[in-house]
Design a protein around this nucleic acid. Structure first.
Lengths: 338, 338
DNA sequence: CGTCCTTCTGGAACCGGTTCCACATCGTGC
DNA sequence: GCACGATGTGGAACCGGTTCCAGAAGGACG
C-alpha cells in the first residue's frame, strides 16, 4: 500500500534520497538515513520488487527446471539449491517439467522468458540447442545439473564411469554372473542416464572378458520397481546371478528386500551394489557409489550466482564432473563359489 | 530486449492498441489484432511480467511455504500444487522454511511481502496470528494445509481421529499390548502432529479400557528411525508388543524391515499399522490409513485460485477435514495369543 | 436528420521504484 | 584565495506495460 514516496514525505526528504537511504546506493548522511529508516519502519514499508526489477532488470529470482519433486535425488537437489539461494537473498521459482513436449515448450517459451528470473538452473533436463538459444538470447546465466550440455556450464557425475566402477567392484570380488537392473532403454530420462549406466556396465564386463548374455533387465527407478524385478529374477536358483548392479539405490534396496523375503542371504549368496548414496542405503547395509545431490544442487546454485555477480566472464561452458565415492557396506563380498 | 513500443511501431499502431491486441482486453479490430500479433512474433516479443504486475497489481505467482522438500509427504503435496498452478498459468515460488525462527521471520517479513506473490499456501506450517495479520493486511489469499489455522481456510486430516482409528483397528483385532512409535514430543512439528497422534492413540486405548504403560517411544519420522527403534523394542521377546501403531508409514516400514531381520513374522507375531498411504506401503504389505497428499496439494491450490478469482467472497476461514481411508493389507491381523 | 450506442484508436497518466544530472557545501592542498 | 574532489540532496527521466479518457466513424432508431 505504502510507497517510497510516502516514506520520503514522512522523513522530509525526496524520493531519490529515500531510495538511496534504503537501498544503500549512493551518498546519504547518517542522520537522514536514520530518519528514512525510521519512517519506513513506522508505516511498514516494503519495497515492490516489481518496480525495482522493472528499472534494474534484476529480479533476485532464479528459475529451477526439474522433472520430479517427489523423488529422492531431485528432492535433495532442490533442497541444496533452495538453501543456497535463500541465503543469497534470492527467490526460487519452480518449474516441474513433465515429459510432455507441449508443456515443456510452454515453460521455455512462456514462463521462463518473461523477465521474471535472473538465471535458470536445469536439473536432470538436457536442454535442446533451441532452448539454450532461447535463454541465451535473454542474456541469462544457465547452469545444468545431471550431465553435460553443449555450451553451458554443467555439473554431474560421469554415469558411464560410475557404472563401470560399480561393476568392476563386483568383478574384482570374483563375480562372473552379474546382472544389471537398470532403467528402461526405451523410456530414457534426459542425458540418457539409463543407457550410460548400461554402457558402463557392459564396458566393465567386456574389459574383464565376461560374456554378457541376458544380463540386463529394465525396471522402474524405485524400490517397488527393484523389488518386483528381483522377485522374478531371483526366484529360480538355477539361473540366479551371484551379483546385481542396480541402476540406483532405490532399485538396489528393492532387490535386497526381495532377496530377504526369498531367503537369499545378502551378501553370502547375492551381492548388490547401487549408485546414489540414498538416505536409506545405510539402513539396508547397501554398498553404493555415493554422490551428494544436495551438495550438487548447492554447487549449481553457487555457480549461477557467481555468473550473476560477474557477467563479464563470458559464459564459459564445460562440464564439471563430480566424483563418486565407493561406500563399502555389507551388501557385497566374494561370491560363495569362489 | 524488445518492448511493446517496438511491436506497436512495427505494426503501425499505438502502444495502447498493441497492448489491447496482445492482452485481449478492450476493442481491437480483427485486422489490427492480426498485424500486432504478427509483429510481436516477428521480433520475438514477450511481455515483461514485472511491468504488467506493477500496474495491475497481480503477479500470476503463488508462494508456497513448506518445511521440507525431500520428504515423501511434502514432495507429493508440492507436486499436486505445482501441477494445478501451472495449468492455471501461475508460477510457483518456493520457500522452504527451516525451523530456525529467524529465517522464518525473514521469509514472512521480507520475501513474501514484496508484492511478488498473489497468494500464499502454507504447507505443514502453523501460521502465528502475527504472520496471518501480516499477510492478511496485504489482501492476499492464504490457504493452509496440514491442520486448522484460525481465520483462514485450511485442509488436512484429523490427526487425533486418524490415530484413534488406527489404534482401534488393532484393538478390534484383539490386540492388548500395543505400542506407539511416534514423533518426539519435544520436537513438535507445527500443528503438533506428534502430540495429536499420540493423543488419539491414548484415547483409543482408554476407550478400550487398556492400561497404557511404556506404550510410547519417540522416533525420527523416517524408515531408519522406525528401523532403529524397532530393533531395540522388538529384540526382547518377553516385553515385545503384539502390535505397533506407527506415527507414519515410513516408521511402519522401518518396523517391518526390522521385524523381518529379527525373524519376527508380520503379521503372525506382530501387527503393524501406519498412517499415510506411502508409495512404498504396498510393497511392504502395510496396512495403513491412506491420505492423498498430492490431491490435498491440488485442492489447496484450487482453493487459492478460486479466492483469487472472486475476491468478493470474504475470506471465509474454516477447516476442511480430509477423510482417511483404511487400506487393509497383510501387516495386521488377530494376535497369535487369541 | 439528429441522437445515441457500439466499435476502434491514440494520447497521456500512472504503477513504484532507480539513477542520471545538476547544484550546493565543505574540506583540503597549493 | 582558488581549484578541486568528496559528500549530500532534489528534480526529472525512465523502465514497460495497462488503463482512463477523448474523439472519430459507422450503424440503428426515433
Amino acid at each position: 500500500m505504502s510507497a517510497i514516496g510516502d516514506v520520503a514525505r514522512l522523513a522530509g526528504v525526496s524520493k531519490s534520497t529515500a531510495s538511496r537511504a534504503l537501498s544503500g546506493n549512493g551518498y546519504v548522511s547518517e542522520a537522514t538515513r536514520k530518519r528514512v529508516e525510521d519512517a519506513a519502519r513506522d508505516i511498514g514499508y516494503v519495497a515492490s520488487s516489481n518496480a525495482a526489477s522493472l528499472v534494474t532488470g534484476r529480479t533476485k529470482n532464479v528459475g529451477v527446471v526439474i522433472p520430479y519433486v517427489n523423488r529422492w535425488f531431485f528432492g535433495e537437489v532442490l533442497d541444496g539449491i533452495e538453501s543456497t539461494l535463500i541465503k543469497a537473498g534470492y527467490d526460487l521459482t519452480l518449474y516441474r517439467l513433465s515429459p510432455e513436449a507441449e508443456q515443456r515448450q510452454r515453460v521455455f517459451e512462456y514462463f521462463l522468458v518473461r523477465k521474471r528470473v535472473d538465471a535458470v538452473i536445469a536439473v536432470g533436463i538436457e536442454l535442446t540447442g533451441e532452448e539454450i538459444q532461447h535463454l541465451r538470447s535473454l542474456g541469462k546465466p544457465i547452469v545444468g545439473l545431471g550431465g553435460p550440455i553443449e555450451g553451458i556450464p554443467t555439473i554431474g557425475i560421469d554415469d558411464v564411469a560410475a557404472a563401470r566402477l560399480a561393476t568392476s567392484h563386483l568383478v574384482s570380488l570374483g563375480h562372473r554372473r552379474i546382472m544389471h537392473l537398470g532403467g528402461d532403454q526405451e523410456v530414457q530420462m534426459d542425458f540418457r542416464v539409463h543407457a550410460k549406466r548400461l554402457s558402463g556396465f557392459r564396458q566393465a564386463l567386456e574389459g574383464a572378458g565376461i560374456a554378457a548374455s541376458h544380463d540386463f533387465r529394465a525396471v522402474e527407478f524405485s524400490i517397488p520397481g527393484g523389488y518386483a524385478a528381483a522377485m522374478e529374477v531371483l526366484a529360480d536358483p538355477r539361473v540366479r546371478p551371484t551379483a546385481i548392479f542396480a541402476g540406483c539405490d532405490e532399485i538396489a534396496i528393492g532387490v535386497i528386500v526381495a532377496a530377504r523375503q526369498l531367503g537369499i542371504q545378502v551378501p553370502a549368496e547375492l551381492s548388490v551394489i547401487g549408485i546414489d548414496g540414498h538416505s536409506l542405503s545405510a539402513t539396508f547395509g547397501l554398498t553404493t557409489l555415493r554422490q551428494d545431490p544436495a551438495l550438487q544442487g548447492a554447487t549449481a546454485a553457487t555457480m549461477a550466482l557467481s555468473q550473476l555477480a560477474q557477467p563479464a566472464t563470458h559464459t564459459a561452458g564445460g562440464h564439471n564432473p563430480i566424483p563418486v565415492t565407493l561406500t563399502m557396506r555389507s551388501s557385497t563380498r566374494v561370491p560363495a563359489s569362489a
